[in-house]
Design a binder for these strands. Structure first.
Lengths: 249, 249
DNA sequence: TCTTCGTTCTGGTAAGACCAGTACGATGAC
DNA sequence: GTCATCGTACTGGTCTTACCAGAACGAAGA
């Protein structure tokens, strides 16, 4: 007697839309518990499995949290599902990685600008720590890649932007892998060690100086140089070219 | 006799992980159909509703497509669920909108750079069309906001980056609303008309000139000016200030 | 007042069934 | 032999009923 008007749409759609509307119009607020599955099913005139499908869908969206034997509550939105998405999407479309890297550059370049405005002492310290670790792990591809990644993440965190952070984090799986493989080039190009250390230091300095424009330029150049190394590795130019470029820089 | 071996994880988790692995290791490729729900349930030793939950979850991730009475197929990854996410996330955290706007700026600034490298004639034409529409709809908040949005979307499309496009698109709901509300300021600030027309034109010109650095600077300034108008509107400065600023610019 | 216990509620899952279209092979007409 | 038609098997969509185990919470007892 309550839901037969909501025809046309499938059961799942009905439940999903119903819940979405409740979330959008503020009827369901963060931290609140929503109806029990059974009650929801009864009220919407669908079966419980259908309700569960809709809840699972919202759960994947990072909007609700399903606590076993407790209930379903609205949680702080969390885009961690993007991680799964990027990972799976990449598996289907391997060529996507360069594309994602471009998006990552977008995120970080904006982040470094905001970081110049908003970074706190704690952010500086985190950046500093990452910087030190980059120096310490310069000869270790694994730890080095991890340190490199931490530095870049520290930049994003320093931007104090949850959205940028979550987007960056979503790409982390890919980024981490990329950082690591780039680190393996260190064996090939001896000048890379100083590049890795000095260039990150430069980026750090510009953030400390709070000059957004220069920070972005520096970071872009940092990416460009890294790309250049990778390009050279692909085209087969090795140590020989290395010597020249080392003094050229 | 079927499930006790698959320990620890819940039924849903088992199915989800199973499918994810298949997708990651290439066993399931794009366009392929996966097992029927019943068969999947039988093989994994879970009930069909559980299988359906997992399929629904993957569907939300934009990885698979469920065709009624036909089957479930692996499709080209599609991040359109981000739209739902941002919309719902914003409803829960209204303060997130400025944050999302910053992410949007990140996307567009990178996009405009790439557009300078990659834009085709078709992209220029699309930008041009949007530009014309901005001029035509300058007095209409609705159509004007839409035209404005189209222009910015055209920039992202010109970047030829699927990832940037999908991220931008995900924020479209919020952006569209924001563009519209900004357009209402036109009534308040007469100088906004020329700003809207000239500034977009300037951005367009820099893209045509394929000067990435200048394009980004121009676009950033474009955003900054828009922000400035909004700031003034919030602080209550209206037409009075307007006259001065008009000649000041 | 604090502890303990048990009822109740909750999510997790299973199993079986029916519906309505789709896909496709078999059958029949031409 | 070719083509149109027709069944039938299969598929997803959904409902129903039922049981489990742990959490929550109030009542009863120490």
């Amino acid at each position: 007697m309550e839901t037969q008007d909501a025809d046309s749409a499938s059961g799942f759609e009905r439940v999903f839309v119903y819940l979405r509307e409740r979330l959008l119009d503020g009827t369901l607020k963060q931290g609140e518990r929503l109806m029990a599955e059974r009650e929801l099913a009864l009220q919407l005139g669908v079966s419980r499995p259908i309700v569960r499908e809709a809840l699972r869908a919202l759960h994947m969206l990072g909007i609700i949290e399903i606590r076993e034997r407790v209930g379903t509550i609205v949680k702080r939105p969390d885009a961690s599902m993007l991680k799964d998405f990027f990972t799976l999407a990449l598996a289907q479309q391997a060529d996507l990685i360069d594309d994602v890297m471009e998006a990552r550059i977008a995120i970080e370049c904006q982040a470094v600008r905001l970081a110049c405005e908003r970074a706190t002492i704690a952010d500086f310290e985190r950046l500093q720590r990452a910087l030190v670790r980059i120096g310490e792990t310069i000869d270790d591809a694994d730890a080095g890649g991890s340190a490199d990644f931490d530095f870049h993440r520290a930049i994003v965190l320093a931007s104090r932007s949850p959205t940028l952070a979550v987007l960056h984090e979503s790409m982390s799986t890919l980024l981490a892998r990329s950082h690591r493989s780039r680190r393996e080039l260190v064996q090939q190009f001896s000048s890379m060690k100083s590049y890795l250390i000095d260039d990150h230091k430069r980026v750090f300095d510009t953030i400390v100086s709070r000059d957004a424009d220069r920070a972005e330029v520096t970071l872009r150049r940092h990416f460009a140089i890294g790309d250049e190394y990778r390009r050279r590795a692909v085209t087969g130019e090795g140590d020989r070219v290395e010597a020249r470029s080392a003094q050229g820089t």
